[in-house]
Design a protein around this nucleic acid. Structure first.
Lengths: 163, 163
DNA sequence: CACCCTAGGTCTGGTTGACAGACTCAGCAA
DNA sequence: TTGCTGAGTCTGTCAACCAGACCTAGGGTG
């Protein structure tokens, strides 16, 4: 029960309204967005497969896919299975692939804190080596970072002062 | 326009209903949850500071904080600034701190794809070294992983077969 | 004492989103 | 002609979001 420091860190002198987390979560922060993405990363690319496999309400899936296409995270591609008419599948764009670390981070956190007692239902392994896949913090200079204390916040090039 | 493989990967023979991503997103996947967490990670711990600083509707903030406390991600602690009455602040639990990689991943993705042209408003640097902080995929055996292709999905201990 | 200020909420009401279940529609197949 | 299948849309209900006003307890001020 000690008094906290009321001195706000430097970053907080700036508006967070333009902070990218808010924008990112406006896209990613809907109940099913990540579930859809997990399906696509797992190779499920078709509407009915997703709806059936992940148990997403069809209307919601429809909305989510349309939004993800509009945001440039998925693209809708026609293809023709031999002897059938043209169908469509959803595939990841580069922007979509780059969400993999987010998905992985969420997945590891969920496995740690939300899995049933017996353990997580699905695991990701390093192909060949067999060890579990995870994320490590590091800086662009290559140093590993183990402690949150080693991370500092600084204003970036797009900073905007509070009025 | 090639036909996709309709053979679902091994993981998909199992229900994803119990997959932890779904559960995690039921908690994290709401418009403001991460924005609240970002504030707390930045050292903003009090109701009014969050509401003012991040522009969150007070009712929503109230709900979000209550939910995060109930989920064991935040805890509410009383403290008394000298000469004032008792107040409350929200602090991260261990479970909450472990969300940092998720926050960092979202933040880096947002900085890359959603920032204003001039760049992200805030950056995270390695204290001392000054380089930007990011995440690297690696396996528990210590190998770096650069390609998504190196990651394979396997059933985990808590797997549950589809009926 | 009466009044004001502040932190930390609640209350109200309109708008949007989630969701289940039924319906549609095009093209192939029998 | 009828049926099947993939990929949706339509309808109606219920919950969540959100802005803006309101409330309340404790301490300070005149």
């Amino acid at each position: 029960m000690t008094a906290p420091d009321r001195v706000l860190p430097a970053a907080l002198a700036y508006s967070t309204e333009n902070c990218t987390i808010g924008r990112a979560m406006a896209i990613l922060g809907e109940r099913w967005t990540f579930v859809v993405l997990r399906e696509v990363f797992n190779g499920v690319r078709r509407f009915d497969d997703m709806a059936r496999h992940a148990g997403i309400p069809r209307q919601v899936l429809s909305n989510r896919l349309a939004m993800l296409v509009e945001e440039g995270i998925l693209r809708k591609e026609p293809y023709r299975p031999s002897g059938e008419r043209v169908r469509h599948e959803y595939r990841l764009t580069r922007k979509g692939f780059d969400l993999y670390p987010v998905l992985l981070a969420v997945s590891r956190w969920g496995d740690t804190y939300l899995a049933d007692p017996e353990g997580p239902p699905v695991e990701l392994e390093h192909r060949g080596c067999g060890a579990r896949v995870g994320l490590r913090m590091s800086c662009d200079a290559g140093h590993d970072i183990d402690e949150l204390r080693e991370v500092a916040t600084r204003p970036g090039p797009g900073v905007r002062l509070l009025e």
